[in-house]
Structures are given as structure tokens and as C-alpha cells.
């Protein structure tokens, strides 16, 4: 197993609002190994994006980070603005959900691509342009030379996301954070983008932190998965164990709500209820109100993240005493 490139320890992100401090990410631990693809999964509003913005240091002004975010020996949670800037876009890069609005409409693709090279690598304009053209070709864009002079509105959504990926890869970062990179794209383009990211991951030593709510993306790309619910990690496992042997009732619910192609025309499962609003944290397990296995204890005490097997951890009372022999229905329908 390779060494972790990013190590997040007891990360807690809170926002100061008019109604007091609201904790969105609550005490999470995870790591990303060099060169691997880590999936972070969960419904909307569970704190995935805030986690990624905390790592990037791009939270809005009212956001505050506690805990440690250690990247190559440097604690980003306590790094100076200047230090953060030298890492951002250089050693850690990010791709966003909305390719349609993530490129600046009034600058050419070329000028937006070479910016990072000019500041981080102190490259001349000409060198930077050549590298940018090479990167555009690498992400599978035809007629790269002409594209450099085009404006974002002249490109389709899929092309723009490829440009975003090329832009993120400009400085060959050690870590690429992809925040739902395929959500806004149509299905065929989604597959192409995932294929491209898998290719880049295998050809370079860039680790990817893939934030998604789509288990299909996880199955396709990730080696390890972290499942988040209401700002906490509820399960952490390698991808095979997660799909074969999901432990947490929430993970089981997520997997059951993926449509199955093999016949069985029945109503698609959905987890009852909604993600609790950040700030409306109740005692006990946050998932208990929606959980079919909830016990008395679940509403009173918060379970800890417990190791079950090698590389599988779960935060659920079902597994605390019985060590994995819980009542959870393990069949994946």
C-alpha cells in the first residue's frame, strides 16, 4: 500500500450564520493514497462539497475549518494564504460540477489554461501555450490549436469539462479533487469523461478524490469509498467490499436505490425521509430516523466508526457487539 498524499484528521467545518454556528462537516477522518481514486459518496447536503472546499481552502468567508488537513507534511488547515495559493492549482487541482459556468466567458480557453502555469511554474507564454495545446490533445480534444483561441460559449458541455480537466492537469498535480464532474453531463458524455479521468489516473501519478452521489461512478472508477451522511463518515471500505457486503443501513439503502437492469419490474427502492438540515443535529445516530433497523440506543448515543474487516469501517450500533453479524439484510437487490 502506498503512502497517503492527503490525510484529513478530525476535520470539522462550520459556518457562522445569523442563527449561530452551523456545523456542516463534523469530525471526519480519511486519507487519499498516492495514485489512488477515492470516492466520497452521499446524498446532496451531506457535506461532500464542503469537505472538498475545506481541503482547497476555498470556503466562503463565513466558513471555518478545525482539525488537520495534512498534504505532503503540510497542514493546510493552518497554512498561510500565500502557501495555500502556491498549492492550489499547482499540487492540488479541482474540477467542478458545472462545466457550463465554470469557465470565464470573457477570456479565451488558451488564456485560462496557461494562467496556472504562468504563476506556479513561471513559464513563458510561448512554452505555456505549447504545453496547453499538448494537454488539450491529451484530454481528447480535436483541433487543439484553434481551441486555444475559442471562447467557452463556442464549446459544448462535454468539451468544456474536458477543458476543465486539462486546466486542472496543467501543473501535473498530486491530487485532483473532482466535485461531481459528470452530474451536469448527459450519459454518453459522462462515460467518456470517466474514461478520460481513469486514463489520466493510470498514466500519471495523480490521485483523485471523486465526490459523487452516483454509485455507478464509484463502481467504475474508485478503489476505496467513503460514505458520508449528515456531515459524518458512516462507512469506509474498498470498492469490492462496499458493493458486495455493505454494512451501514444507509449504504445498503443507497445501493438498493440504484436501478437494476436485470428484469424484476418492481418499484425502485428509495430511502424514506430526507437528509437532516445542517444545524438541526439531534442526539444519537443521525440516520436513525430514516433507518429500518433503528433501535432504542440509536436515538440516544452516537456510534463510533468501528473497524470491521481490513479496510472496512462502519459507524453503526448494529455492528458494535455482534462484530458484523448484524441484522442488516445484505442482499443487494
Amino acid at each position: 500500500m502506498s503512502s497517503p498524499v492527503l490525510n484529513v484528521h478530525r476535520l470539522k467545518t462550520a459556518f457562522a450564520t445569523d442563527d449561530g454556528e452551523v456545523t456542516v462537516v463534523n469530525d471526519i477522518d480519511f486519507h487519499v493514497n498516492a495514485g489512488e481514486v477515492l470516492g466520497i459518496v452521499g446524498e446532496s447536503g451531506c457535506g461532500k462539497s464542503v469537505t472538498s472546499l475545506s481541503v482547497m481552502g476555498l470556503l466562503p468567508a463565513n466558513g471555518k475549518v478545525h482539525g488537520d488537513i495534512v498534504f505532503k507534511g503540510e497542514n493546510l488547515a493552518r497554512a498561510s494564504d500565500q502557501k495555500m495559493r502556491s498549492i492550489r492549482g499547482n499540487e492540488i487541482a479541482m474540477i467542478f460540477q458545472e462545466p457550463m459556468t465554470s469557465l470565464n466567458p470573457v477570456f479565451t480557453i488558451g488564456s485560462q489554461l496557461i494562467e496556472a502555469l504562468k504563476i506556479h511554474k513561471k513559464m513563458s507564454k510561448k512554452q505555456a501555450q505549447q504545453l496547453a495545446i499538448a494537454k488539450l490533445k491529451e484530454v481528447g480534444l480535436p483541433r487543439a490549436e484553434e481551441l486555444m483561441k475559442d471562447f467557452p460559449h463556442q464549446l459544448s458541455g462535454g468539451m468544456r469539462q474536458r477543458v476543465m480537466i486539462a486546466m486542472a492537469m496543467m501543473c501535473s498535480p498530486q491530487l485532483l479533487i473532482a466535485d461531481e464532474p459528470t452530474t451536469a453531463l448527459d450519459v454518453t458524455i459522462q462515460a467518456q469523461i470517466l474514461e478520460l479521468m481513469t486514463k489520466l489516473n493510470s498514466e500519471t501519478d495523480t490521485a483523485i478524490m471523486m465526490i459523487t452521489h452516483d454509485l455507478g461512478v464509484v463502481a467504475e472508477m474508485c478503489q476505496r469509498v467513503v460514505v458520508m451522511y449528515a456531515g459524518k463518515i458512516v462507512e469506509e471500505a474498498d470498492v469490492v467490499s462496499l458493493f458486495k457486503n455493505p454494512k451501514h443501513p444507509y449504504t445498503v439503502g443507497l445501493i438498493r436505490s440504484v436501478p437494476d437492469m436485470r428484469g424484476k419490474k418492481e418499484r425502485l427502492y428509495s430511502i424514506p425521509g430526507n437528509v437532516p438540515k445542517p444545524g438541526s443535529i439531534q442526539t444519537g445516530c443521525q440516520f436513525a430516523p430514516r433507518c429500518e433497523h433503528a433501535m432504542e440506543r440509536c436515538f440516544q448515543e452516537t456510534p463510533e466508526l468501528t473497524s470491521l474487516a481490513e479496510a472496512q469501517k462502519v459507524r453503526c450500533w448494529l455492528y458494535v457487539e455482534s462484530k458484523g453479524e448484524g441484522a442488516v439484510d445484505r442482499t443487494i437487490s
Binding site: I87, A93, F96, S102, N104, I119
Partner: peptide, 21 residues
């Protein structure tokens, strides 16, 4: 807007983000 977040994610200094992007 999203593209300003992109510009910041590249590691640009705030004056450049504000006065250019």
C-alpha cells in the same frame, strides 16, 4: 459565480481574481 471559484482554485492572487476575472 462558478468561474471566479475556478480562478481561485488555480491559485490566482485576489487582486488578479478581482481586477481581471
Amino acid at each position: 459565480s462558478d468561474y471566479i471559484r475556478t480562478a481561485r482554485a488555480k491559485g490566482l492572487k485576489m487582486p488578479l481574481v478581482v481586477y481581471k476575472h
